[in-house]
């Protein structure tokens, strides 16, 4: 099974949405947690879960960013 895609997606969402601004990055992370995904639960060793990956794709769409 592939690993680490979820963490990569989360990191990319935070980076793209905050444009590298660290204060905004904290807020974006909070928004992601309030949407029901806790970034701290996922590492580069986390198995890819298609359901979470789909949720993150939807979340990226909501934020208006392309992964």
């Amino acid at each position: 099974m592939e690993k680490g895609t979820i963490k990569q997606m989360i990191d990319r969402i935070i980076l793209l949405r905050s444009c590298g601004n660290s204060a905004i990055a904290v807020t974006v992370k909070t928004k992601i947690i309030l949407k029901g995904i806790n970034p701290d639960k996922y590492t580069s060793q986390t198995d890819d879960d298609p359901q979470i990956i789909r949720k993150l794709q939807d979340l990226a769409d909501e934020f208006g960013i392309r992964l």
């Binding site: 905050s18 905004i24 807020t27 928004k31 309030l34 949407k35 909501e62 934020f63 208006g64």
Partner: peptide, 12 residues
């Protein structure tokens, strides 16, 4: 509402 606002802006 708060979710949609948060999607659309960084303004708090």
């Amino acid at each position: 509402w708060m979710d949609k606002i948060g999607n659309a802006t960084d303004v708090v």
